[in-house]
Design a binder for these strands. Structure first.
Lengths: 349, 349
DNA sequence: AGCTTTCATGGGAGCGCTCCCGCAGTGTTT
DNA sequence: AAACACTGCGGGAGCGCTCCCATGAAAGCT
């Protein structure tokens, strides 16, 4: 075993580059960091030396002195298994990753599943380890955003909690979200316009912003059409397909005359489709179904699923934009970004 | 703006812990790193000081001196969009992440989509930035593994290239893979046993190990049953659903009498199902279909899809195990791990 | 010409940590 | 009693970098 103190010979240091270029350490540092205070001649010499030696700055050394790490953490604070694999996360990560590629920032992925892991994680989410944090999939009672904000680490949430729905400008942390209320309204209004009379909804969990907002949108739209909502037209799920199945059975049992269902996400809509088929009801002839997500599966169901589209990848990109501005101390135009949705009509209603 | 040189007051250093505990820097370091050369009294004093002050070691400073970073990169070297969102990746990441949680290692996520990004990435995959690299989704001509191995950075591949299929012990880098040949054999033999006479296959891309191996398994099984394989029974796709559609159409055009299809992954099987339905053929009565992946969609298709199961999460965990051993300089039992598969029978055949 | 201002430059100090050397104190052996 | 080994400990050196200050040269001013 080679001694730890030995530097691997292949990796040149700043000092060696300086020697090769015939300049001082300071000048090389200035060139590397793009300072304008360098003469063209010196700059050229340094650049050639860097290329010749294959110099790559040592991040640890730089981080030690600048107190910046040039990395951000993506924290998926969710205990359930299903988190990944959901096309939602896939899309967000794609957006985040492609956006980060345009910055000097590196992405750290942290999944905190058990609560022990979350404690450990919390300890490491400090300025000396990351420059900022992207938080995904929050339940309303998650203490993490507050903790991080206290430490004043730049934080951006993907989505928001129910408490931030009413007055987004008062939200304690920045966030990027889609207009869930508007999207749900779109879906419901669409069903009304299609002459559906008894429109039910399978709502999401009421401890998550998206669940609350999509139900609010449904209520809004129904109220706008002066439809009173029989409580038996509302069932709740937890965004999984199984919960959609259970909810749909409840709805059919309570109100067998339902002729439309708006499900708060695609997996639950899938569950609904399954139950309807098993009950011998035709979609869309007997019951129309509209989902929310416009995920890949929406075009693969039978019949294909009408669904509210949300710009997921753009959400990821917006999160990075907001966070990067914060990290650089740039005051963003707004502390939050809300993206629009639109309805993609397919065969189910 | 506060000067960069200022230490944020909240974060105590080793030295401050030492002062608080009334010991020297060395002793604190020994306690933090679990050295046995510390008296119980000193150890206790240091531990209390750490707890009191909320001390967390500075990774940059540690990395600077140890030349280790305690982080590994997960490189998804794939230019296509679809990469994420595939349940395959989701599962692997879950396995990797849960396994890493038991080590001191942190996960860096790097996706290199454009080739410019790949150059930049390659520069940063050095010992001074990461302790090891996990590589996913390789095409046979990917130069990255060789480059990294040259630099002698510990590397573990997820999957393997076609050239490593024959003699895994001769593979230039460690890898974790499933027994694709065996899985494909399982699927094919199952169709034979179900009395299918004209069994076609939709093979994957032949520049990827999985594509080659699954086709080989099909051929093996057919040969074992002394069935000659009409070349018209083989079509090729690129693992996407669309390519499965095209391939299935080709097969039906060339051999309308096909009564079974083995697709090299689930999305292509999905495409096949779609074409068969559109052609008025019943599944499984007229044509049986078997996929490979046993992904979530397999149980959601109509009819549900019989598919070869691979232990994806376990694959991720095995990759981490192998890499962590390498990083610590532990000679692993074998430089590679091949995991088994089994068939999950559903309605499609 | 003599003065000030500007600019490019070299190199010291120090970021927070680990490694290692040497010292003191205790115990063991001859 | 002397000689030696071992254990626990303190603190110097140094990892590779950025920041900043001092310096000298060039340029601009009266």
């Amino acid at each position: 075993m080679v001694s730890q103190r030995q530097r691997s010979p292949g990796r040149p240091t700043l000092e060696e580059v300086a020697a090769a270029a015939g300049v001082g350490r300071g000048t090389v540092s200035r060139v590397v960091n793009g300072s304008p205070q360098v003469s063209p001649a010196a700059k050229e010499a340094v650049e050639r030396a860097i290329a010749d030696l294959g110099y790559v700055p040592n991040r640890a050394a730089r981080a030690l002195v600048t107190q910046r790490t040039d990395s951000v953490a993506l924290v998926v604070s969710e205990s359930e298994d299903r988190v990944f694999g959901q096309p939602f996360f896939a899309g967000i990560i794609r957006g985040i990753s492609s956006s980060l590629a345009e910055t000097p920032l590196q992405l750290w992925l942290a999944m905190a599943q058990s609560s022990a892991e979350r404690v450990r994680l919390n300890l490491h989410l400090t300025r000396q380890h990351v420059d900022g944090v992207l938080l995904l999939s929050l339940h309303d009672d998650d203490p993490l955003p507050a903790l991080l904000a206290d430490r004043d680490l730049p934080v951006v949430l993907g989505g928001r909690t129910a408490s931030m729905l009413g007055t987004p400008e008062a939200a304690p942390v920045s966030f990027v979200d889609v207009d869930n209320v508007g999207g749900a309204r779109l879906a419901t209004t669409h069903l009304v316009a299609a002459n559906r009379r008894r429109i039910a909804t399978i709502a999401g969990p009421q401890d998550m912003g998206a669940g609350v907002a999509r139900l609010a949108g449904y209520r809004d739209a129904m109220a706008a059409e002066s439809r009173t909502v029989d409580p038996r037209l509302i069932a709740y799920g937890d965004f999984t397909e199984d919960s959609g199945i259970v909810a749909m059975r409840h709805l059919l049992a309570a109100r067998p005359d339902i002729d439309a269902v708006f499900a708060a996400n695609d997996p639950m809509a899938l569950g609904a489709l399954r139950v309807l088929r098993d009950s011998g009801l035709r979609v869309p002839e007997d019951v129309a179904v509209v989902g929310f997500d416009d995920s890949v599966i929406a075009s693969q169901t039978q019949p294909t699923l009408t669904s509210v589209h949300q710009p997921i990848e753009e959400m990821g990109r917006a999160m990075v934009r907001l966070l990067y501005d914060k990290i650089r101390g740039i005051q963003p135009d707004a502390p939050y970004i809300i993206l629009g949705t639109h309805l993609v009509e397919r065969d189910s209603g």
